[in-house]
């Protein structure tokens, strides 16, 4: 009967790993796949900027002003004769940093506040959520601009401005997830065995929020990139001569008819990266959804 025993064991355990499912789902989702490829290119451009940029992005050469895109300058030059391709490549560093760091900060703040609000409920919940409502009631751009004007324009202040605006959305999502999760029996089981509240938050609630946080994170990055671009465009963000895509659009707009590529090229870059992150985020959400439902 040994073979029978083996047959039992074979039939017993369902072999389905979480990541295998994820990859499987991505294979079927073309736009998520394209998004991930674009992002890999984007990130490697940012990391390898000094090695792949054909020119120095800050090198002013008035003789090369407003060169059309050509074999020499693939994407043309701007009003100071700087190579736009090189500036785009260096600009991707700023966009990446702006995309990642404030989003990360706002996610951390939002997650902590959301978990606490959802789990403890009552007054704690009320205070945190009203605060989030207030933040969300303001037009986010206006709020960010107010912060920038008060604190002055610098990279650090951009982080603060974007984080201050974006945490509220995360807090709401995490809170609603926590409200569902805390009613689950495994949380009850932890309470019964006497697990402390903060351990329940950390070990039981937080890991189950990770899939949605992952989606929020990927969708938050393009938001932050766009905010930075807008702030820079309005002149309160990154200051010249730093190469930021938003700033490049802003400075290029004056020559839109004379040399349209100066403004359009960085605009298209913003568009592509934002779209790629959105595709990836949507793909992740679709892939992770069955697990959320479970």
């Amino acid at each position: 009967m040994e073979s029978q025993q083996q047959a039992i064991e074979q039939s017993q355990y369902l072999e389905e790993s979480f990541f295998a499912e994820l990859i499987q789902s991505f294979k079927q989702n073309k736009s998520a796949l394209v998004g991930s490829i674009v992002l890999v290119l984007f990130i490697s451009a940012a990391v390898l900027a000094p090695f792949i940029a054909p020119y120095d992005p800050y090198n002013v050469d008035m003789s090369q002003q407003f060169q059309r895109p050509s074999a020499q300058y693939l994407l043309g030059t701007d009003m100071f004769g700087r190579d736009i391709l090189s500036r785009i490549i260096y600009g991707s560093r700023i966009s990446l940093v702006i995309g990642l760091i404030p989003t990360l900060i706002s996610m951390v703040i939002g997650t902590i506040l959301g978990l606490v609000a959802g789990y403890y409920g009552k007054k704690t919940d009320y205070i945190i959520m009203r605060l989030a409502d207030i933040v969300m009631a303001f037009p986010s751009l206006l709020l960010a601009m107010v912060v920038m004007y008060t604190l002055g324009a610098s990279l650090l202040n951009i982080f603060i401005a974007i984080s201050m605006v974006n945490w509220a959305g995360t807090a709401r999502v995490v809170r609603s997830q926590t409200l569902v999760l805390k009613e689950k029996e495994f949380v009850e089981a932890a309470k019964i065995m006497g697990v402390k509240n903060w351990v329940i938050l950390l070990r039981h609630l937080f890991p189950n929020c990770i899939p949605s946080l992952l989606v929020l994170f990927t969708l938050g990055i393009p938001d932050a990139i766009m905010s930075e671009a807008t702030l820079s465009f309005l002149g309160v963000g990154v200051q010249p001569p730093m190469a930021s895509w938003g700033l490049m659009v802003s400075t290029g707009k004056e020559f839109l008819f004379m040399a349209p590529w100066v403004a359009i090229v960085p605009g298209v870059a913003i568009l592509i990266v934002a779209l790629a992150f959105n595709f990836l985020g949507d793909g992740l959400r679709d892939a992770l959804d069955p697990y959320l439902k479970q």
Binding site: A7, I8, Q10, S11, Q12, L14
Partner: peptide
Amino acid sequence: GMLPNLLQLP
């Protein structure tokens, strides 16, 4: 034992 996985029927 338990119900077989229909993907790996004995």
